[in-house]
């Protein structure tokens, strides 16, 4: 039950893009087509789960015991950057078809603040109060967050595909109208407020 609440909270109520403002760059950059948005979502889910697993293990067994949590930022970003590289190399060798589908998005993920943001956020307070800081909880939470990311970016891409055909003022074209659409989408997501208690 706790996990179900946590997942609903992460996907809908605390949506990473529309509520927490993380990962806006890919949200605006890779959302002109539904297919590419799905690809980006899959890549982010994969990397985010892996990265959170590794960084929360590092936090629990290395940074906290050695009392060097002030190195958190630098360690986490290095882990994420090297993970992304590793995933890229492994995908290339093991599953060329998947690499073809996700490959172009992978380098972009290093500078996707969603991955680092969630890695840091899960270390700040326990996700399920009774468990304390738990690596398993963190990883499940990161997958749920990534699903929320995919949901938002796919809905948004669908809206943008329709918008291509609309006649709007010249200055509004492109990013500005996309932002305003995102604002209206964010209003819709506000409706989920209070649905579940947040971690």
């Amino acid at each position: 039950m706790e996990y179900i609440l946590m997942i609903i909270g992460a996907v809908l109520v605390n949506n990473i893009i529309l509520v927490q403002f993380l990962g806006i760059c890919p949200f605006l950059g890779v959302s002109s087509k539904v297919n590419t948005a799905l690809g980006m979502g899959a890549a982010v889910t994969f990397v985010m789960a892996l990265a959170t697993l590794v960084t929360s293990a590092l936090q629990k067994y290395v940074l906290v015991p050695l009392n060097i949590t002030f190195l958190q930022t630098i360690v986490f970003i290095l882990v994420i950057a090297s993970l992304v590289q590793m995933v890229e190399i492994m995908l290339k060798k093991m599953s060329p078809s998947l690499y073809k589908a996700l490959g172009v998005y992978l380098p972009l993920i290093t500078t996707n603040c969603a991955v680092l943001g969630i890695a840091i956020k899960v270390t700040e307070q326990p996700l399920i109060a009774a468990h304390g800081f738990s690596i398993i909880d963190s990883t499940i939470y990161s997958v749920a967050i990534a699903i929320g990311f995919t949901l938002a970016i796919v809905i948004f891409a669908g809206l943008r595909e329709q918008m291509e055909l609309v006649d709007i003022p010249k200055g509004m074209k492109g990013v500005p109208i996309a932002l305003i659409t995102a604002g209206i989408l964010a209003m819709a997501f506000m409706g989920f407020n209070g649905l579940v208690p947040l971690p």
């Binding site: 529309l18 509520v19 403002f21 003022p169 010249k170 200055g171 509004m172 990013v175 500005p176 109208i177 996309a178 932002l179 305003i180 995102a182 604002g183 209206i184 964010a186 209003m187 997501f189 506000m190």
Partner: peptide, 25 residues
Amino acid sequence: LIFVLAPGAFLVLGFIMALMRHIIN
């Protein structure tokens, strides 16, 4: 209230950007 909440951020930034582009055009 909506302007300090999440949707307001998107709306304000969108309109400011549109204004900037309009001026530059």
